[in-house]
Design a protein around this nucleic acid. Sequence first.
DNA 1: TAAATTCCCGCACAAAAACGCAGGAATTCG
DNA 2: CGAATTCCTGCGTTTTTGTGCGGGAATTTA
Lengths: 249, 249
Amino acid sequence: MLKKERQAFILHQVNLHNKVLSSSLCTDINVSEDTIRRDLQELAEEGKVIKVHGGALSHSFNQVYFSTNGVYSQNQKQIIAKKAIALITNGMFILTSGGTTIIEMARCLPPQLRATFISGSIPAILEYMHHPNIEVILIGDRISKNSKITVGSEAIAKIRQVKADVCFLGTNAIDVEQGVTDNDWEVVQLKKAMIESSKMVVCLSIAEKINSVQPIRVCGLNEIDMLITELPADDSKLKPYIDAGVKVA
Amino acid sequence: MLKKERQAFILHQVNLHNKVLSSSLCTDINVSEDTIRRDLQELAEEGKVIKVHGGALSHSFNQVYFSTNGVYSQNQKQIIAKKAIALITNGMFILTSGGTTIIEMARCLPPQLRATFISGSIPAILEYMHHPNIEVILIGDRISKNSKITVGSEAIAKIRQVKADVCFLGTNAIDVEQGVTDNDWEVVQLKKAMIESSKMVVCLSIAEKINSVQPIRVCGLNEIDMLITELPADDSKLKPYIDAGVKVA
DNA sequence: TAAATTCCCGCACAAAAACGCAGGAATTCG
DNA sequence: CGAATTCCTGCGTTTTTGTGCGGGAATTTA
């Protein structure tokens, strides 16, 4: 990996998360901490980031202060993202829905990963696009401004043409009896198509959405291969899902 | 292998992958690293690539990751945008390419305008999405990271299905004899399809790009209905185009 | 205050770049 | 046609750059 490339990645991370730890960077990019520190120093000298003990901050961050709730939720989503990323290997074809958890996953993808991501979610696509080694396929159709995702029969037809290795679904509600449910009819149609077109279906969900139900049904638990939350795999909340045959991470 | 040939290959690789390692180049082309380095140096001096230790990066790489500056020559582009918007009326179907001029137009669209915009350009789509009354149709396919636009046969097929009232093309180069030209083969294919699918074709171009030529031909002047620049319509630079039958604004 | 990180400094090693040189190919010109 | 010139390329050597490592100083955290 080229030095400039690495620095670009760092800068990208900083601008996204508003902060970055040199320790996590050095495991992500797989270089020594010294190298990261030197990079951060250079970027700081150019005024691109603000270097602090243990990492760096985005320049635009000096005034904005997230609520504790927000930060907490983001940490949870990062945990989920890390677990999801562990399932991805080089060369995979991956379908993803939209949603903040998916975005967080996109932001955390290791830079050396080579894979093809297929999605109709505009924010997700934006993240994938910044990644150096990822091929991005955009599902086109009418854009739903609410969900910032392409919806409609054309989009569904395109998804049907794909056979993906794995499909990551951002989940609005999941319940042992009702399965996965959501509240936007068009998005549900898309998710159904994505499930059909994938060898493996993985749901990403923060714990607070577990055991909740929304009006429109996406699929039953039997169609789901794995459920990823920020909880440890042996958490009691997850037991019913394991019993129902869903793998948990 | 000829020198020019080699450099063309290198340039192609860089534009394709956004980066290139001199080591991999020298095994690919089977010449010494010195030769590669000299080639890269020449290309860097011509501004075609950005040379870094260990290889080279595409110019768009820097744009993607280090974009700190705003839109290039924004005032001029706003003038162009205003003129273009004057052509749009409620209910129109409008095809647009990518490019900063198009983005600027998207930003200047009056909020009460009702129209349907069709594009494969991610930055343009992002702007359209923010407008309250605009319907957005996204052309899907593989995303070219250079141009941030979807390219490929699927995209072209989708464009062919459309019959738009007007098509706005961001123009890289226009010349009285050579017509409209560009430097990215895939983008050119798209633009050709867009021209075919539109009742009216409008080129947006800042004055400094007038009378310049790029390697790949998009279309002749006869296929263009209107040319919009920031210059007043009676500017002498535009006279040859008016004589060639192109309307000017 | 003590322990644990993190930072800073110098050093060593490897990779890449720069430089000069020489053989060979292409071009120019008498 | 043939000689002179220029350009291109590869090779060895030197210089620069990039990276990792160890130890001690500085800073944070418990």
